[in-house]
Computed example of a mutant assay.
Amino acid sequence: MPVRPLLSLLALALLLSGCDRHVNQLREQRFAPFSEIEPVKVAPSALVASLKANGSGSFTAESLANLNTLLRAQGRLRQQTLTLQPYTPSGERLAQRLADVLRAQGAVSEQVIVMPSRLEAPQAGEWDLQVVSEALVVKVPDCSIANPDAWTVKPYQAIGTLGCANRANIAAMVSDPRDLVRPQALDGGDGIGAVNAVGRYHDDDVRELLDIDFQD
């Protein structure tokens, strides 16, 4: 290709790229200023639910509602440390039953702690059992529509911060909130071990299994 047409093509490309950048800047100015995405936060949380027995071997409806609200707010059961503190004989009996139910629902046995009864405590008589939940909890930002009335007029400003819902969904799906704040090895998810095993199989270089003879 002659030099002059080549230079013309290069100049045209630079001109088009410059125009494209200028057009993008004009578009950004139309929707500016942009609000920054609120970061997802992971912080320790401790909540308390005070429960009352109903006289028939269970908790009152209000107590059960408070307990379920507490457990849902603290994330997955297996990530919670639950301390059950009874204050009355009824609370002591219910504490053992509640501990069994929590373990059956997925709580780690060692993280469900039933404390000795405190019949002489000032709280005795006010409620029968107190449940304390400690856990690392993900603080998800509010990603609701910023201005619903302007949805059809200024959709970009009305919807709020772009990317907020995506971050919030990812944060809500993690099984361990600590994965959002610290790195973790792949372990069993690392495909290198599986690839090497298949390679040895195709190369007829399979490793012998460990064989320990307990007869000696």
Rank of each mutant, 00 (worst) to 15 (best):
A124M: 13
F31A: 13
S50R: 14
L102F: 05
Q29H: 09
C143P: 00
L119M: 14
G57Y: 10
V140Y: 01
T69P: 15
W127P: 03
R93M: 08
D20E: 15
V40C: 11
P86L: 06
R21T: 15
M115I: 09
P39H: 03
Q123H: 05
S17A: 15
V137D: 07
E126Y: 07
P89Q: 10
G18S: 07
F34W: 13
V40D: 11
T81K: 14
V137L: 05
T83E: 12
P122Q: 08
S50Q: 10
L94W: 10
V138A: 03
D128G: 03
R78L: 12
R76T: 09
E120R: 01
P122C: 00
S56L: 12
S109Q: 12
A104Y: 04
A49T: 12
D142H: 11
L26T: 15
G91R: 01
A61C: 10
S90D: 15
V40G: 01
L94C: 10
W127M: 00
C143T: 02
T60Y: 00
R76M: 01
E92W: 02
L7Q: 14
L26Y: 10
P89N: 12
G75F: 02
E134Y: 11
R93Y: 08
S50L: 02
L7V: 15
T81F: 11
P44W: 12
E62P: 00
T60V: 07
R30G: 02
Q29R: 13
G55E: 03
S45K: 07
L71E: 06
Q105E: 00
